[in-house]
Design a protein around this nucleic acid. Structure first.
Lengths: 210, 210
DNA sequence: GACTCAATCACATATTGATGTGGAATCAAT
DNA sequence: ATTGATTCCACATCAATATGTGATTGAGTC
């Protein structure tokens, strides 16, 4: 038996969901609320397996509700259930640890299936949402994986530069003469095609050499 | 009619998939190959809607195949179909722009449904994979959103520092005296709690001030 | 009106960084 | 055995940066 809590401000939809889910074999809706004002207490009291969470609610919205739940009981599976499938909301929800993100237009049969999935550790997502998630991923800043053929020693020096060490300090750290540090740095500049410390540091970050 | 290409080195599975899919209403398997050696040419020739791509194949593996396809025809939907659901492979595949990631143990009916989804721009994922994707998301390094109360002018100066401009150049760019640049920079150092240009640049990157 | 603060400029000085030129030892590969 | 890359050190010079102290203006606040 999967125990659920529902958060949804629209009375019709709240009732509808409750009836649908509670009326189905293996599902039990413990309670349904119109906002997240007492979400922490409610989750603690009812110990649900899955929470259906609307995003757009008065007072405390669904994203905050999600964060509150995850902060207190991270094992509760939270399914975001909303009409919006825009980037911003999806991203926020997933960053806050949502276990799934499905749209309200999802047909009842699918919805029950999704809840089932969520309760067993899955991550149900409406297809359009999943597609957006993947797009975010591939647009994520990749390691870039440039190389520049820096020698080991040169990489070391670069690390110190990034840390803001002066030539003198680097020399001390590496047990070599300051002039040697200089020549390493000169070589680094050549290889990175830059001509100042700041540019080298910037490039190190951009190309994930650090 | 959804046109497919299949890449799978195991002969039994390759034949099985081909029979299953090609035998289903609305699906047409154009060809099936045992590796990705000629993937670019094949995709160009057959113009498939969806590609089923195994990961672990001899010579050119599925991840490379995926990259090759996405480099030449990014609109082709590529479904990774594999026995592995480990972090590394999933991550690599999604970064390379995979349109879905499903496990070989997926039942036939689901598989067809997934292909259908993929062809219409969806992103089908096995539940366990979706869960991992979400976990990666919530573990992603957030912008951190520190502020440091830099004034507008100070932010400008910092941008130039990151670009590797000298004080003189910044002064010229901003139509102010070099001494003014200096005092801005001094203020920036105070606010960022650093005491050199390199550290300021590094901090700017770390805290996504750039 | 007094006060704060960001932004502006000035002068002085010490430290650090960049550039140039040159040499030398080690080691792997040809 | 020579070449090439890497690592190392030295001396010299000029440019850039850091630090300190101090001052003016204008916008906004109390």
């Amino acid at each position: 038996m999967i125990k659920l809590l529902i958060y949804e401000d629209n009375p019709q939809l709240r009732e509808g969901l409750t009836m649908l889910i509670d009326g189905s074999e293996g599902f039990s809706v413990q309670a349904a609320f119109r906002n997240c004002s007492n979400v922490v207490q409610e989750v603690t009291t009812y110990q649900p397996d899955v929470v259906l969470m609307d995003i757009d609610m008065p007072d405390v919205n669904g994203l905050d509700g999600l964060k509150l739940i995850k902060a207190t009981k991270p094992d509760v599976s939270v399914l975001m259930l909303t009409v919006f499938d825009d980037h911003q909301n999806i991203f926020q929800a997933l960053l806050s640890g949502a276990n799934g993100y499905i749209l309200k237009k999802t047909p009842p049969a699918k919805l029950l299936e999704y809840i089932q999935e969520a309760s067993t550790g899955g991550a149900p997502m409406t297809a359009s949402v999943a597609a957006q998630v993947l797009r975010m991923f591939s647009q994520m800043n990749l390691p870039a994986d440039k190389d520049y053929n820096l020698s080991e020693r040169e990489k070391e020096v670069l690390q110190y530069l990034v840390k803001g060490y002066s030539y003198k300090m680097i020399a001390a750290e590496m047990f070599i003469a300051m002039d040697t540090v200089r020549s390493h740095i000169k070589k680094i500049y050549e290889k990175l095609h830059v001509n100042s410390k700041s540019e080298a540091v910037a490039k190190a970050f951009r190309d994930k050499l650090v």
